[in-house]
Computed example of a mutant assay.
Amino acid sequence: MESAASSPQRARAVGRGDKMRAVVLAATITELTKGGYAAMTVDGVAQRAGVHKTTIYRNWKDSDSLVADALTKHFAVEVPIPDTGAVESDLRELACSVVTTMTSEAGQALLATVLAEAGRTPKLAEVKDAVFGDRFRRAEIVVTRAVERGELPPDTNSTELLKTLVAPIYFRLAFTGERVDETTAGQAVRVALAAAHAGALPAA
């Protein structure tokens, strides 16, 4: 890491507004990846991002807010929402993106953060809920389009279908440690579609 003496020059290079926020959020992800949630500090993020600590506190009320924003933005970018014109290929791309993202070094570290630490840190449990809630809201359009095309029953619950899709992937990653790959993604798609067509995922 660079010395504190170089911070003013680095802070000017970072800039303000959206550019500054992007740099700080990227630094937060790096800090989480390298040391985990317990070791992450606002000081460390500030030094890595090249900004003053007060800059961070002006934009985020505390470290948990910073982590929540960083994780939400990271997963929104790393798992794009597909639009192939068919629900099966849309869900397959979505599942494969989850596999690719969560098996990376950063993905594994971030998964450990939102799952393992949430049980010990109530505020981080809220972070986990916010991250996954945002993920499902962004992906709802995949199910909405499929219903409009007549590929899924009209009363299909989009959130439940998406949970059914990703559940076997996250179960292997978080609990059993089994290998996950495109085959896992394909199986998850077939299970999710079968459940929807069987009427097992009705809207509330």
Rank of each mutant, 00 (worst) to 15 (best):
A185K: 03
V24L: 13
S6I: 15
K73W: 09
D129S: 15
I56G: 10
T183R: 11
L110T: 03
P82M: 04
H74S: 09
H52D: 14
S6Q: 15
P122Q: 07
F136W: 15
A70C: 13
R149Q: 11
R12N: 12
K19Y: 02
A39S: 09
D129C: 10
I81K: 11
V99L: 01
S7A: 15
R179V: 15
L162I: 11
E105L: 07
G119C: 08
Q9H: 13
E151L: 09
S6D: 15
R12T: 10
Y37F: 01
E31P: 03
V127S: 08
G44E: 09
Q187V: 10
A203V: 04
V42G: 00
M102K: 06
P153C: 03
R138M: 12
L162D: 01
V77A: 10
A46G: 03
R48V: 06
A11S: 13
F75P: 05
V180S: 06
L94S: 15
D62G: 02
D83C: 11
S89F: 01
A130L: 14
E78K: 13
A11F: 08
G177A: 01
K128R: 12
T28R: 12
K163W: 10
A195S: 13
D62K: 08
N59Q: 13
L201M: 08
I81H: 02
A39W: 02
I81R: 14
R12V: 11
F75N: 07
Y170D: 00
R179L: 10
T41H: 02
K123W: 00
P82W: 03
G85L: 00
V131W: 02
D43H: 12
V142R: 13
P154M: 06
T176V: 04
R190E: 12
T113Y: 01
A46D: 04
G177S: 03
C96E: 14
R16T: 12
S97R: 11
L111W: 05
V180M: 07
R10G: 15
G186T: 10
V127N: 02
D155S: 13
Y37H: 05
V98C: 05
A95M: 06
M102W: 13
A118H: 00
E2M: 14
V23I: 15
A46T: 05
F136M: 15
D90N: 09
S63M: 04
V98E: 03
T103K: 04
S104G: 10
L193C: 08
P154W: 01
